[in-house]
């Protein structure tokens, strides 16, 4: 089966600030990602990984270049259309979780479903299922402040996958986790990729974490340094 292209970047740049203070964080990225791939983005701090990921996740807009998602040129879309793309196709996992404070795990996970106009019963059912699949069936009523870092990250993952996105973007999803929790989260992501066919792009600076992916893209100072295929260590 020939691989189908999901994401294509060409000449993508991002400049922060203006005039003298301008800083080019991405300097013309060309990249193609196929449906079903699990890609790790690596590079040292400040190389532009987060910047790239935010643009891919439609949270930020590129300064120039082309970002095509399923052949739709995203950079030409209007704000609302990009919102709809996020709502229906994309999931995003932040390094800092970005959960709503004082809000239970269940309600946090339900949040994306609220904007889909699902009934209360359906929302509950889907959110509970997502929380079960990330291994938190008994923390539904807990607020973020009552959860550990790993548990919060898993709530964030549940929130990202509860809508069954086509593509999942994760910016250092294990950045705040210890090694055993890291392994659990990575196993979960691998599972989502393998079993649900979700395309995953994940930023990490740990080789260990990157080794779960099929492909590693390495950034340096806003350019792609290398793009290599992995021999996955947990190939089945």
């Amino acid at each position: 089966m020939p691989a189908k292209e999901l994401i294509r970047l060409s000449g993508l740049t991002k400049t922060y600030g203006q005039g003298d203070a301008a800083f080019q964080a991405l300097k013309g990225i060309d990249l193609s990602i196929n449906v079903g791939e699990f890609v790790a983005v690596m590079g040292h701090s400040g190389s532009g990984k987060s910047t790239l990921m935010n643009i891919l996740g439609c949270l930020d807009t590129p300064t120039s270049g082309v970002y095509a998602y399923e052949n739709i040129e995203v950079q030409k879309l209007e704000t609302n259309q990009r919102s709809m793309l996020r709502r229906h196709a994309l999931g995003f996992i932040f390094q800092g979780f970005n959960l709503l404070a004082r809000t239970s795990a269940l309600e946090n996970v339900e949040l994306p479903l609220l904007y889909r106009g699902l009934t209360r019963g359906k929302r509950h059912e889907m959110a509970e299922k997502a929380l079960r699949s990330v291994g938190l069936p008994d923390k539904l009523r807990n607020k973020p402040s009552e959860l550990s870092g790993g548990q919060q990250q898993r709530v964030a993952i549940a929130r990202a996958i509860v809508t069954n996105p086509i593509t999942l973007f994760a910016d250092e999803p294990t950045g705040n986790l210890d090694s055993s929790t890291t392994h659990e989260v990575m196993t979960l992501l691998t599972q989502l990729n393998r079993e649900k066919g979700i395309t995953i792009l994940m930023v990490t600076h740990e080789d260990d974490v990157a080794s779960y992916a099929d492909r590693v893209v390495c950034l340096s100072d806003g350019n792609i340094l290398s793009d290599t295929l992995n021999n996955r260590k947990n190939n089945k």
Partner: peptide, 18 residues
């Protein structure tokens, strides 16, 4: 806090007008 809340809502696909 509310601006960040709006950021979260927008990032999971809420429309600005919602």
């Amino acid at each position: 806090e509310r601006t960040r809340e709006i950021g979260i809502r927008l990032s999971i696909g809420a429309l600005a007008r919602e």
